Amino acid sequence: MIGRIRGTLIEKRAPEILVDCAGVGYEVLVPMTTLYQLPEVGAETTLLTHHVVREDAQQLFGFIDHSSRALFRDLIKVNGVGPKLALTVLSGVDVGEFVALVLAGDAASLVKLPGVGKKTAERLVIEMRDKLKDYEPAAGASTAMPAALKVDAASEAEEALIALGYKPQEAARAIAAVDGDGLVVEDLIRQALKAMISK
């Protein structure tokens, strides 16, 4: 696999760049956060890469630093997130901002990224939370859950319980019975289900 390339930057046409490495031109797909940090065309550049081999294509994805590549690799492990969507996510927010959004349970902000629907955003928050312990949130970003998000978390948890087959009144009572201070949607659901099952 190709893990790193160094060469002359020949073209920049978002999201693709062309890097000449000893006479071979590599087409590399890069997130906008990497594109902004690249030198001018004609200058030498070094990129960390992730090589995707599929039945119908081979694609090379490039990143300016280790944390961007590591997050890309974690993102494509999430069910329903392929390389294209992972690239879109990393184009819309940098690593620190993404970490802060996930740790805050802010699925609503993730939905604003192109191609990220409500279910995908919720899946990202749930599946990525444990994987982000080694990443740094954006400087100054609070990982404490704002009051507005707590209300949203409670209503989302209620909707999830209703989708599981509980009556709206049961779902509302179960969520209200949980001490939801600082809890994210999945924790609210988990505690509410435990409380209902133990009754």
Score class of each variant (00 low, 15 high):
I162D: 03
M196H: 01
Q191S: 12
A70H: 01
C21S: 08
Y166A: 07
G42C: 00
A195M: 14
G23F: 10
V93K: 13
V185Y: 02
Q58V: 10
A100R: 04
V185M: 15
A157F: 04
E186K: 07
V99E: 02
F72E: 00
D56W: 00
D106M: 04
Q37I: 06
E122C: 01
A174V: 12
S91Q: 13
I162K: 12
M145A: 07
R190H: 09
V125P: 03
A43C: 09
A153T: 08
V89N: 06
A171C: 14
E158R: 05
L164C: 11
R173F: 06
E27S: 13
G7C: 13
A14S: 15
T45G: 06
L18H: 02
H51V: 10
K131A: 07
A153P: 09
S109H: 14
A148C: 01
I17H: 05
K167D: 12
E11A: 13
H66G: 02
M145G: 00
V89S: 11
L71Q: 01
V78W: 09
K119T: 07
G182N: 11
V30F: 07
T46D: 09
G80K: 15
I189E: 01
V28H: 00
A70P: 02
S109C: 10
T88Q: 10
E159K: 11
K150N: 10
L164V: 11
I175T: 10
L110N: 02
L113P: 01
P31E: 01
D74S: 06
E156P: 01
S91E: 12
Q169G: 03
M1Q: 14
E186R: 07
Y135C: 09
L193E: 10
K167H: 01
D65P: 10
P146A: 10
R54D: 00
R73E: 14
Y26W: 11
G62D: 07
T88V: 06
A160T: 14
E16K: 13
Q58R: 11
V93P: 01
K84V: 04
G3N: 14
K199V: 12
A153I: 06
K167R: 13
G82N: 07
T120I: 15
E40K: 12
Q58E: 10
Q37G: 14
L113D: 04
V53M: 15
A171W: 06
G7M: 12
L132E: 04
A104H: 02
L164M: 15
T8C: 03
R6P: 05
L48M: 03
G180Q: 01
K77A: 12
G117V: 05
V95S: 06
F72H: 03
E186C: 03
D179Y: 06
A108D: 14
V102P: 11
A139P: 03
A104W: 09
G82P: 02
T120M: 09
V30L: 03
F72G: 03
Q169N: 08
I76C: 04
E11I: 12
A148S: 09
A171V: 14
V30S: 08
V185D: 00
I175E: 09
H50S: 12
G92M: 08
R73S: 09
A144S: 14
G25S: 13
T120R: 04
P137R: 09
S67E: 11
E159I: 08
D94M: 03
G105D: 08
E136Y: 04
K119Q: 10
L193D: 08
I64Q: 02
R54W: 05
L124C: 06
A174D: 08
A108F: 06
